[in-house]
Simulated assay, not measured.
Amino acid sequence: MRKLTSLVPALLAAAAVVVGAAPGAGAAPGDTVTTTVEKVIESLPVAAEDSAGYSAGRFRHWTDPDQDGCDTRAEVIIAEATTPPAVDGRCTITGGAWHSYYDKKDHFGAGALDVDHLVPLAEAWRSGASAWTDEERERYANDMGDPRVLAAVTASEKRRKGDRDPARWEPSDDSADCRYIAEWAAVKARWKLSVDSDELAAMQNMVVECQTEEITYELAL
């Protein structure tokens, strides 16, 4: 899995950093925010969810913006390999090894993997993406600017997760809970998505068991 710490220097060099008790206050798209997981959770807007009008097709995903023959899904799988695979000109991936942090399983070969939107497309729609432009939804669905947005994980674990939020799903490996909550909060904050009351309560309950962690994220909107 790509390391969160490897992202921080690049983000700090790319944009201004806003530090304080109200994460994102006064920041513009492209700025970065440095704060704690607890403060991010407390800063997320709370709103009822609405699924009306949702379909996965509203988020154009698995595009190939650099036109190298590998779409976003393949790029994530390649980037998250713990042992690099071989990749041919048609983006066929062979060999390699991966670690799925949701369920603490190692995979040799990409066949058992899928790429998960940590905050699922349906959840994003319910939390504010329904008001975005088509271009903004496409950017979200293919967001490789922050390694927390997309994750190469065991395909069966992704299916179990579905479009559930932390009130209804958590990783089967309990030791991954703190990472999952930190990443969920960072992605929601990066894309200015809301949380519902049950989701917020679940996040607050889970983070109590976690060591206080400073995180940095770049605002996408």
Rank of each mutant, 00 (worst) to 15 (best):
A189S: 13
Q67R: 14
A112S: 15
R159W: 02
I77N: 01
L12T: 12
F59I: 01
E183Y: 14
W169N: 05
P84L: 02
D165N: 15
T92F: 07
A141Y: 03
I181S: 12
D163A: 13
E38L: 08
T72M: 04
D31G: 09
S156M: 00
D163Y: 03
S156W: 01
A14Y: 08
N142P: 10
A25N: 13
P65D: 03
E213F: 08
D68H: 08
D64R: 03
A182G: 15
D198C: 04
R164I: 02
K188S: 10
D31P: 10
S197T: 13
V119S: 00
H61V: 02
S127E: 04
I93G: 01
M206W: 05
I78E: 03
E123D: 14
W191K: 06
R168Q: 12
A16K: 11
E42K: 15
A186D: 00
L118H: 11
V40K: 02
W169Y: 12
R126L: 01
A124C: 08
P23G: 04
V149H: 11
E183N: 14
P85H: 04
G95C: 06
Y101G: 10
D143T: 07
L200I: 10
P84G: 08
D31H: 10
T83V: 15
N142Q: 10
V119A: 06
I93V: 13
N142I: 07
V17W: 00
S197P: 00
V76Y: 03
P171N: 08
R58F: 05
A185N: 07
A27S: 14
S197C: 00
A56S: 14
D116R: 01
E75M: 01
M144V: 14
A27K: 09
H61A: 07
M206S: 12
G57T: 10
E170N: 07
L121I: 05
V153E: 00
A21W: 06
G109E: 06
D114L: 00
K105G: 01
G109Q: 06
R148P: 00
K161S: 01
D88I: 11
T63L: 10
R168G: 10
D165R: 12
A110K: 13
A56F: 02
S43D: 10
N205Q: 12
W62Y: 07
A167Q: 04
V33C: 07
Y102G: 06
D143N: 12
A52N: 12
I215Y: 10
K39P: 07
M144R: 15
A152D: 03
L193F: 10
V187E: 02
E170P: 00
A47S: 14
W125I: 07
A13S: 10
V33H: 05
